[in-house]
């Protein structure tokens, strides 16, 4: 595990599977998975539509500790159906967060870590996915009053759709350079607005607007982090120890509206224009 200070030998968090990501974040030996793949709770909606299911439905829900502090840690597997959330995957996340809320209400301190790699609602079971995402968001809003809810977006999928709103509701949001955060995915915008307005194949353009570095520069996240697993773990520890923030980003409604008014939609916004409007200074 130890890789010294040589960045060439660092283990990339981005390249780890969802289950390995959780393992890397939690204290060694503390991980206990809730609803494991061996419980065989798969999406029968996918099977009805002729799509091969996965035994964990693309979500890993665990309980464990970080630096001895009790947490629930949840990771979405971006490689299965684009990390999309349907009935089972959504219910696993919502149920885990709701258990954490109940534990906190009963006097037990449990924080949460969400590793988001998701395109949002799974279109093959969209209504149930939407309902589940609403439940996830309600649970986060309840839980963040008690304990920090730390979200990580490390890529390569990124975090889009309803789950981008979920990310915005978390107490702290951390991203790597490879991570992306946006309401609509690049291909969706291109399909709706046309390639001349938004070319989803233009990677510098896409990452320039929605990548972790830009999201950090525009004050939409709390930290821009390295993708080395050891550094990711350190950052999660650091933000968990900060406790409940004084104010939540999602409550800054007026300042967000004021900044939105500065956007001129007559021409395509550039990364620089977005930074001028959404700079960290402007958000304070």
């Amino acid at each position: 595990m130890s890789n010294g200070n040589d960045p060439r030998l660092a283990i990339s968090f981005v390249e780890q599977s969802a289950r390995k990501r959780v393992e890397h974040i939690l204290d060694a030996g503390s991980m206990r998975e809730m609803v494991t793949p061996f419980d065989r709770v798969t999406s029968h909606w996918l099977e009805m539509q002729g799509i091969v299911p996965q035994f964990d439905d693309g979500v890993v829900t665990t309980r464990g500790s970080i630096d001895g502090k009790s947490v629930v840690a949840i990771a979405v597997d971006g490689s299965f159906q684009g990390g999309s959330l349907g009935e089972v995957a959504g219910a696993k996340i919502a149920g885990t967060l709701e258990l954490a809320v109940e534990a906190n209400q009963a006097g037990e301190s449990i924080a949460a870590v969400l590793i988001l790699e998701t395109g949002g609602v799974r279109l093959q079971e969209a209504n149930l996915g939407l309902a589940a995402i609403a439940e996830i968001q309600s649970a986060i809003v309840a839980l963040r009053q008690f304990q920090p809810v730390v979200a990580l977006i490390t890529g390569p999928v990124g975090c889009f759709g309803g789950m981008s709103i979920t990310a915005g509701l978390c107490s702290y949001l951390l991203m790597t350079r490879e991570g992306r955060l946006g309401l609509n995915g690049p291909q969706v915008i291109e399909q709706e607005a046309g390639v001349s307005e938004y070319d989803s194949q233009d990677r510098p353009f896409i990452w320039g607007l929605t990548g972790g570095e830009q999201r950090d520069a525009t004050g939409l996240i709390d930290d821009f982090i390295d993708s080395d697993v050891i550094k990711v773990r350190q950052k999660v520890q650091e933000y968990l120890s900060k406790g409940v923030p004084k104010a939540f980003r999602s409550e800054a409604i007026q300042s967000s509206l004021d900044r939105l008014k500065k956007v001129d939609t007559r021409s395509q916004i550039t990364a620089e224009m977005a930074r001028a409007i959404l700079s960290k200074e402007a958000s304070l």
Binding site: F38, V52, P53, Q54, F55, D77, S79, F80, Q81
Partner: peptide, 18 residues
Amino acid sequence: DRALVGYVGSGDLEVMID
């Protein structure tokens, strides 16, 4: 022992032994 490897992503597969 129970075992689980792989994932249901393009060009891959998930194998579970129980």
